[in-house]
Amino acid sequence: MGSLFEELEAREATARKRVEALEAEVAEVSGRLSAAREGLERLRIARETVAEVLAEMTPEKPGVAVDTDRSSAVDSVASAYAGAERHVIGVLTVPNWQPGMGAEVLPRVYRDILEVVTDARGPVRAKQIVPRIGLPAEAGKIEGTRSKLKRLVERGWLDEDTPGMFTPARRRGGASPNSR
């Protein structure tokens, strides 16, 4: 019977080595997955930042005229960035609010932010909005959301009566008090 126990111990040792090898592989793949996710997140942030910069460019800044006439905006972006791999279609991602305009014209993240502010009982801060739109409460996400909130204020979708406190826009006479 001694040889049966020895055989079982040998098989257990082999199985243990296999488990350890697989755990090492999992750790390596997990590290590579984490690095790939981090790279993906950096690329997403870079793309969003470029889109925001292009959206904020004014006629005084070289290259692009921000205009509600989409065809002229596209032409000026194409000429300003001739030779770029991608052409930007429409520079103004958050249009100025106009009577009769609904939130459906906004990009998805802006609609989510607008919905949270509208549903709130009172003024809200960026750090209160971030978890409600499904983002982690990290400084970078809060600052990005604050930037989007400020853009919604300057385009007439929201009001900011107290710095950092955002409310739905009170429209007087058919126009937002914040619209230009």
Rank of each mutant, 00 (worst) to 15 (best):
R37I: 03
T162H: 11
R70F: 01
N178A: 14
R170P: 01
A36D: 08
E85Y: 13
V153A: 07
G122M: 07
A78H: 00
I45S: 07
G174F: 04
G100Q: 06
G174H: 07
R132A: 09
V26C: 05
F166D: 09
E20K: 12
S79Y: 09
A13R: 15
R86D: 08
E25S: 12
V88L: 11
V64F: 02
I89T: 10
A82Y: 04
M165D: 12
W97I: 05
V130W: 01
R37C: 05
A169H: 05
E138D: 11
R86W: 11
R125W: 02
L106H: 03
A82V: 07
V124F: 03
V26E: 10
A46E: 10
I89Q: 09
K61L: 15
A35N: 13
A21E: 14
S72Q: 09
P123H: 04
R132I: 00
L106N: 07
D69C: 06
V50M: 13
R170I: 00
L43S: 06
A65T: 14
V77P: 01
G140Q: 13
G134A: 02
D161P: 11
F166H: 07
I142M: 01
R42L: 14
D67I: 15
V116R: 03
T162Y: 13
R146E: 13
A10G: 12
E7L: 13
S72D: 02
G90T: 12
S179I: 07
R146M: 06
T58P: 01
G173N: 14
R86K: 10
W97Y: 12
E9T: 11
A15C: 03
R18Q: 13
P95F: 13
V153S: 04
V66D: 14
W157I: 04
A126Y: 07
T93L: 12
E85C: 00
K141M: 14
P59R: 10
R42D: 12
V130E: 02
A13L: 08
E25W: 02
I113P: 05
R32T: 11
